[in-house]
Amino acid sequence: MSTALEIRNLSKTYSGGVEALRGVDLDVEEGDFHALLGPNGAGKSTLIGILTNLVRPTAGEIRVFGVDARAHPERARTLMGVVPQEFNFNVFEKALEILVFQAGLYGIPRTRALPRAQELLERLGLGDQMHQIARHLSGGMKRRLMVARALVNSPRLLILDEPTAGVDIELRRGLWEILTELNQKGTTIILTTHYLEEAEQLCRNLAIIDHGRILEQGPIQDLVRRLEVQTFVLDLAAPATGKELPAAFQVRRIDPERLEIDVPGGLTLNQVFAALEACGLEVISLRNKSNRLEELFVHLVGRGRP
């Protein structure tokens, strides 16, 4: 399998002296669903801005499916589609025309672009809004319109910058389905998001960026396994009032029927249940106190801060 995106030693210093990227190295394999996470101001938008020709890099190399994006920017751009964070279409144009226009800029003639645009709008649930002026669309519709627009040139690499920000849960899940389907059909996807459960649910690999540096990258499952402690919230069948709590674990009472338990890495949930049973505590449900990826994220980003 080839590499969809290869970034080497990418740096960006803005004219004011702000170092947004400090030697970023990143590899995204073809067919991957890759998350790019980081707190606000970490360098994500600068990185995506460079990939999409909106920001000029100070130094470094970028290859898109082997094409040197700095030497042959136009060839590299034919392979990509971008869903930006902010709405950036002409709000006075009709939805269908926005897609046909974008297709034209990729050299796709109107006769081919029109059925493709119609198909994409139908697929994204905008079939009834095709001839609607874009500024009359709801926020969720506008976001789906941007996804449809990014797909009009059938990109091999799709970059989405917080595509579900401010979107209701139903729409978010709809977009997840579409993105999963695209990825299963072979489109490589890079996603930035602040919803870590979204990244954990959709992506196989991730990179965490902070202060312009990649702190960690690799398969999500491998990274979350490295968590030293996981905290679970347990719902009990009966109040634990007056009962002894397992001494082998850090356990805190939230209320009579709920406990919070820290499980160190290396121990299994079977061991937890055995200890609870020995104390006469019956568990009816449990959940992670916080998303595992969120714990990893907070751990890594927190470690990098003064």
């Binding site: 909106l54 920017p73 751009r77 971008v82 279409f89 226009f101 990729y106 050299g107």
Partner: peptide
Amino acid sequence: SVEELQVAP
């Protein structure tokens, strides 16, 4: 919306 042109090849 000029970004539509910038991202295009």
